[in-house]
Design a protein around this nucleic acid. Sequence first.
DNA 1: TTTTAATCGAGACGGTACGTCGAGTCTTGAC
DNA 2: GTCAAGACTCGACGTACCGTCTCGATTAAAA
Lengths: 203, 203, 203, 203
Amino acid sequence: MSQTRAHGGRPRSERARIAVLEAVDDLLVDVGYAAMTMKGIAERAGVGRQTVYRWWSTKAEILFEASVTDAASELAVEPQDSTLDDLASYLEAVSHFLSVSPAGAAYRALLGEAQHDPAVAKLLASTDLLGDSARPVIERAISRGDLPSQTPIDQAVAQLLGPIFFQTISGYHGRGITPHDLANAFLHAAGAPHHAAPSDRSA
Amino acid sequence: MSQTRAHGGRPRSERARIAVLEAVDDLLVDVGYAAMTMKGIAERAGVGRQTVYRWWSTKAEILFEASVTDAASELAVEPQDSTLDDLASYLEAVSHFLSVSPAGAAYRALLGEAQHDPAVAKLLASTDLLGDSARPVIERAISRGDLPSQTPIDQAVAQLLGPIFFQTISGYHGRGITPHDLANAFLHAAGAPHHAAPSDRSA
Amino acid sequence: MSQTRAHGGRPRSERARIAVLEAVDDLLVDVGYAAMTMKGIAERAGVGRQTVYRWWSTKAEILFEASVTDAASELAVEPQDSTLDDLASYLEAVSHFLSVSPAGAAYRALLGEAQHDPAVAKLLASTDLLGDSARPVIERAISRGDLPSQTPIDQAVAQLLGPIFFQTISGYHGRGITPHDLANAFLHAAGAPHHAAPSDRSA
Amino acid sequence: MSQTRAHGGRPRSERARIAVLEAVDDLLVDVGYAAMTMKGIAERAGVGRQTVYRWWSTKAEILFEASVTDAASELAVEPQDSTLDDLASYLEAVSHFLSVSPAGAAYRALLGEAQHDPAVAKLLASTDLLGDSARPVIERAISRGDLPSQTPIDQAVAQLLGPIFFQTISGYHGRGITPHDLANAFLHAAGAPHHAAPSDRSA
DNA sequence: TTTTAATCGAGACGGTACGTCGAGTCTTGAC
DNA sequence: GTCAAGACTCGACGTACCGTCTCGATTAAAA
């Protein structure tokens, strides 16, 4: 289960690993993603440049490792009494994550890079950060009987996360839309009988 | 003296302006956004480096000018007979724009930069590209009576665009969700009475 | 006769050129050849690194350009009244050049590099620094009648410079050999009838 | 306790020592002195990096140890029948050593380093490689009566070795000067009465 | 017509990060 | 305590692009 050490050689320095990850966190806040360089990370961490390159290829990779655990924990919310409150509190957490949290800033930076760097896109795809956090919330709603048991989970995830993701990531000017509004609307859409299309009414 | 120009001076070369914009379009396709440099743009355009800087500050600015008009036209779709078809065809256009079209690639690149560059964020915010394209579609649905007349437009835009935007921009693994599915679900959500409790679904 | 400037472009900065050559001179004295780096040269000169590489490939090339004129002038000595004094004063200058002068230190550094770098060897070969300085001295001796008119110049140069060069460059422990001694011995060897080999005596 | 070694410890590996010296010999031929690195030596020898540093400080030191014995044997020539032939054959050996032999390449590399590294200069000075080889040849000539018995040996060594050393080490363009020519000229110079005025040549 | 001045292409300028390489040191477990 | 292995910090390598700065050469309106 160890990371395969054939036989000899000095073992990897845990001290250096931690220092790099912390340097990346600090730099993201201090100078922002664009001004964050491999050189700067190494210097801030008090680590040789080669040591950084030995274990990570790009600053995106370091940032990913530095943020993913924080991110996941920030998106895991306590179940609430009612499904509506549960959804609203989850969406509140997502909103906070995407627009306020440092871990969310890291995620947005990586998401940005992913738009023009397939390697970063692949990296991000390796962990479905948002989807994995949304699924339990939806499953809870189903088990409570507030969503139909045959609800297509993937689509429900997109419907739940989509609006708030869209508002935060694109700079969309939707004024006064609260997580509670979106939770409410989501329950309507996903809760309704699924294969009876509304436009059928007009037929 | 006079207000705009004291007296002489060579006028701006339209030839150079066009050449730069075309070079940016070409380079985005050929080498991608990340590998696109001001130096490269000037060389590809056969234009002095200073000339580029004289009229645009950043490559984001050039890319924006080069792509917005294309983008807007790609997102304007023909009205369809039924509202469901109308919505589906619009979402199909959005999907195509975001994942296939070169203009969309430019938009995604800018969106990416905007995640860690406030100047680019501001630039993008100056034109609500997606919102402006969605509004007419929603208003058409309202005027046809398929959405309540008091529908909050801003929120409806986010609900309509959110899911497809989320799927494309985050690399969400939603399998087999079609624009038609999303259009259908949207009509359910937005078409339902707005402040009704979720338990109404059982009625 | 100019350095061919096709048409456009900012002209080469004479200021930068001089600054680099002076920086090399300074650094050779301050830190020595081995510790002299392209980076260090650029910084000392207050010049961009690229600017150094644009005009010179290696530090050897810069050092050569910086030293060759100084070197040549240091090796040009005033003619003396007698041929013996003339030779002795020349050899004194050579000795001073090779063991004391900064220009000579540069020459020795280049000579050292040339032993394992063909490019530097070629560079040095482009100017026969020592040979060119010795030839006039020998020709003066011939024209004064102190050397036979058919003296083979190339060989005479090697015989004149060889001993002092050997002593300085190899760390040879010859004690108490003066330039005057060597001048005297040289006059004997080269001045003697050339094709009557001494070993012929024993025949 | 005891004087030399307190108690335990693995003894130095002779295998490793030999492997390093052979690796240096190989590398000098394969990649040349400049491209020869401590890292490369250790890898070629199949030896830990620390092991190399434990026994030698610099690559110059290893090269020196690897080459001196070869060098000395290459410069020891068989006595010839006539003094002229003896000198010529010796000079031929010197020329071959300096310009062809691998051991000579090592010597030239060290000589090069010595021009800007006092440590290497000191190392080279510890063995007067060329001088020690020339002395017996000159003494033989004296004992044969072909050189005056009061000949100053040190100066004679410089006069004998100087020209050929100069030609090989500096890239001097002396065309068609053979070891035989130089041996001949040397006998003239050193064989003549030592303090006689140059005008004696006309006698 | 002649001036005047802002434009144009070209390309050198001082900076700085890139990713690689070698330096010499340190830290393992095995012998 | 030495060995092979290999990670460590450090710093130079040569390259690329940054945004700025000259150049000489256009180009058109103002004088």
